[in-house]
């Protein structure tokens, strides 16, 4: 069992490595994509400078904490979109019968399907996250925690996309649900939770877990809390398991569309 996991991990890393090499063929485009994504994210600092000129504290967050919130949101997004880019196109892969080529390979179908290409600009998101960490306050403890939350958050974002995309096994047009779910996660993640009230506040810690991916990590990095730390770990493991479970349950319903494609 452990050997199988190790082999699958190796294959996944190789798949990502070759996808990256393909992207690096045009070096100018590769570097421009990364640099401009960093600039693109940095432009949002203007928004917060203007908002903090109106109020010292927004939703219980100081300016530095908002930067950290942005950092975590960007790096989790970057991690997920770099390693598991195709999780965000899985709905299309299922709907158009493009899973065929992954089914015949002696590898984990889900992992093969979501790791066979990378998003170059996501490296920019990832780097931006760490720049924000340095501005917030660098220490070995913060660095380890930040990296840990980036990985957990990345897995959560990917799992949500896989779960929502797997609905395509049962329903047509589920791509709208996937887009809405992903859009909710990224949009809510970059605003302090203190501005939300009532049912939305409950939703961001349950159905739309932006709170687990972003708000709890900021809270832990500001003041360590072992209970909250454990909640993040348990939530991540549960969601990953759920993603595999739902995908493989749906896969039994999959039928090929006899689509002829060349994978180069």
């Amino acid at each position: 069992m452990l050997m199988e996991v190790k082999n699958q991990f190796k294959i996944t890393l190789l798949s990502v490595k070759y996808a990256l090499v393909r992207e690096m063929l045009n070096k100018t485009t590769f570097i421009t994509n990364i640099l401009f994504m960093i600039l693109n994210n940095a432009s949002f600092i203007i928004q917060w400078i203007v908002l903090y000129s109106l109020k010292d504290n927004i939703g219980g967050y100081t300016f530095n904490q908002v930067l950290l919130l942005w950092g975590i949101a960007a790096s989790t997004y970057g991690f997920s979109h770099f390693f598991f880019k195709n999780a965000y196109y899985l709905s299309d892969t299922i709907n158009n019968g493009k899973l065929d080529s992954f089914l015949v390979q002696p590898k984990n179908v889900l992992l093969s399907a979501i790791t066979n290409s990378v998003e170059t600009s996501a490296i920019g998101d990832f780097i931006y996250g760490y720049i924000m960490l340095f501005i917030f306050g660098f220490s070995i403890k913060n660095f380890i925690l930040f990296t840990f939350f980036t990985i957990c958050g990345g897995f959560i974002l990917t799992s949500i996309s896989v779960i929502l995309s797997s609905l395509s096994f049962w329903f047509n047009k589920s791509d709208i649900i996937v887009d809405t779910g992903n859009s909710l996660m990224t949009s809510l993640a970059t605003y302090p939770d203190g501005i939300f009230k009532g049912i939305v506040k409950i939703l961001i810690y349950t159905l739309i877990p932006a709170g687990i991916v972003n708000y709890i990590p900021v809270e832990i990095m500001t003041e360590f809390n072992i209970n909250l730390f454990l909640i993040v770990i348990i939530f991540t493991i549960t969601l990953i398991s759920l993603a595999f479970l739902i995908f493989y349950k749906g896969l039994k319903r999959y039928s090929s569309s006899n689509l002829m494609v060349a994978r180069i």
Partner: peptide, 27 residues
Amino acid sequence: IEDSTPFYWLYSKLILIVGTIFPIEYF
């Protein structure tokens, strides 16, 4: 330059942040 998308990101952020979220009087 082969891929002009990064320039679009910058343009869209200029419009989005400076134009969409706040009126000019906020600057």
